[in-house]
Simulated assay, not measured.
Amino acid sequence: MIRRNLLPNSRSVAVVVAVGIVAAMLPGCKKHEQPAPAAQPAAKAAAPQQPKPVQKPVSSALKLPPPPVNQFDFSNKKDPFKPFLVVKPHPAAPAAGTAARISRSGLPIHSFDVSQFRLIGVVTGDRQNKAMVVDPNGKGYVLRVGMSIGKNEGTVTSISNSGVDVLEQFRDDNGRVRKETIKITLPRK
């Protein structure tokens, strides 16, 4: 059985490459001369050549003014670092007690009584328990132990699976400081 070698040997590969290089260089080495242009007829030579139309200059009224030197003028823009709500003190001094505390804090969580908040969830975790309450307007707040809530600025003392305990301190009619513990519980289903 005769077996043909399907792979070319190195000598035949070298010959094919050399022939390819020579073939590629031959057309580039020839110098092609362009034929001389034929003499133009006398009729075309006698006619004066028309100049090419030049673009008309744009009038100065249509030109845009040069850009201003200060391109980054933000004098009429709103300052992004100013708060949206600014609490201004009332011109008349409020009476001592709760009214003074409400105007001092100005937060929405301090504008309702503690009993008006609804507890909707309690999260017990590794570090600290948290509770979610909703005010009468429907806005939610996340409470942690130590936060203040309500008109009388009650302090959250404990959060458990059964509810949230809030301690309120206020002065009664006799001028004594009273402490009252209010419990906000989860609604029954």
Results as ranks from 00 to 15, higher is better:
residue 64 L to D: 14
residue 43 A to K: 05
residue 46 A to M: 14
residue 42 A to V: 09
residue 60 S to N: 11
residue 58 V to M: 13
residue 43 A to R: 05
residue 53 P to C: 02
residue 35 P to K: 12
residue 69 V to A: 15
residue 44 K to A: 09
residue 36 A to G: 04
residue 69 V to L: 11
residue 36 A to Y: 00
residue 47 A to W: 02
residue 40 Q to E: 10
residue 53 P to T: 07
residue 44 K to L: 11
residue 53 P to E: 12
residue 36 A to V: 07
residue 64 L to I: 11
residue 43 A to H: 04
residue 52 K to F: 02
residue 50 Q to I: 06
residue 65 P to Q: 13
residue 33 E to D: 11
residue 52 K to S: 05
residue 32 H to C: 02
residue 34 Q to Y: 08
residue 31 K to V: 09
residue 30 K to S: 12
residue 54 V to A: 07
residue 56 K to E: 05
residue 64 L to M: 15
residue 37 P to L: 08
residue 55 Q to S: 11
residue 51 P to R: 00
residue 53 P to D: 10
residue 30 K to W: 09
residue 34 Q to N: 11
residue 36 A to T: 05
residue 61 A to M: 10
residue 59 S to H: 06
residue 39 A to Q: 03
residue 64 L to G: 10
residue 49 Q to K: 13
residue 65 P to E: 14
residue 48 P to A: 11
residue 61 A to S: 15
residue 65 P to K: 14
residue 32 H to P: 01
residue 68 P to R: 08
residue 61 A to F: 10
residue 28 G to R: 09
residue 28 G to M: 05
residue 58 V to N: 04
residue 28 G to I: 04
residue 52 K to D: 03
residue 38 A to F: 07
residue 69 V to H: 05
residue 60 S to V: 12
residue 49 Q to I: 07
residue 30 K to H: 04
residue 35 P to F: 05
residue 52 K to G: 03
residue 68 P to Q: 08
residue 64 L to K: 15
residue 45 A to C: 02
residue 69 V to E: 12
residue 64 L to V: 14
residue 47 A to P: 00
residue 67 P to R: 07
residue 49 Q to E: 09
residue 52 K to N: 07
residue 45 A to V: 11
residue 29 C to R: 04
residue 69 V to F: 07
residue 28 G to L: 12
residue 56 K to A: 07
residue 55 Q to Y: 02
residue 52 K to H: 06
residue 59 S to A: 15
residue 63 K to R: 15
residue 35 P to N: 06
residue 59 S to E: 08
residue 57 P to E: 13
residue 68 P to V: 08
residue 45 A to L: 14
residue 60 S to G: 06
residue 39 A to I: 00
residue 64 L to W: 08
residue 66 P to A: 14
residue 44 K to C: 02
residue 57 P to I: 02
residue 62 L to G: 08
residue 42 A to G: 02
residue 48 P to S: 10
residue 46 A to R: 09
residue 41 P to W: 00
residue 66 P to E: 14
residue 40 Q to A: 12
residue 64 L to A: 15
residue 45 A to P: 00
residue 56 K to F: 00
residue 40 Q to C: 01
residue 28 G to D: 03
residue 64 L to Q: 15
residue 35 P to L: 12
residue 48 P to E: 13
residue 63 K to N: 12
residue 60 S to E: 12
residue 39 A to L: 03
residue 47 A to I: 12
residue 62 L to Y: 12
residue 38 A to L: 13
residue 40 Q to I: 06
residue 51 P to Y: 00
residue 67 P to W: 03
residue 62 L to P: 00
residue 40 Q to P: 00
residue 45 A to W: 00
residue 38 A to D: 08
residue 54 V to K: 06
residue 46 A to L: 11
residue 44 K to Q: 13
residue 41 P to F: 02
residue 67 P to G: 08
residue 69 V to M: 04
residue 35 P to A: 15
residue 57 P to T: 07
residue 48 P to F: 03
residue 61 A to H: 09
residue 65 P to T: 14
residue 37 P to N: 10
residue 42 A to C: 02
residue 45 A to G: 01
residue 49 Q to N: 06
residue 51 P to E: 04
residue 67 P to F: 01
residue 61 A to I: 12
residue 42 A to P: 00
residue 44 K to E: 12
residue 46 A to Y: 04
residue 33 E to V: 09
residue 63 K to E: 11
residue 66 P to V: 06
residue 30 K to I: 09
residue 51 P to A: 04
residue 67 P to Y: 03
residue 40 Q to Y: 01
residue 55 Q to E: 13
residue 66 P to Y: 01
residue 65 P to R: 14
residue 63 K to M: 15
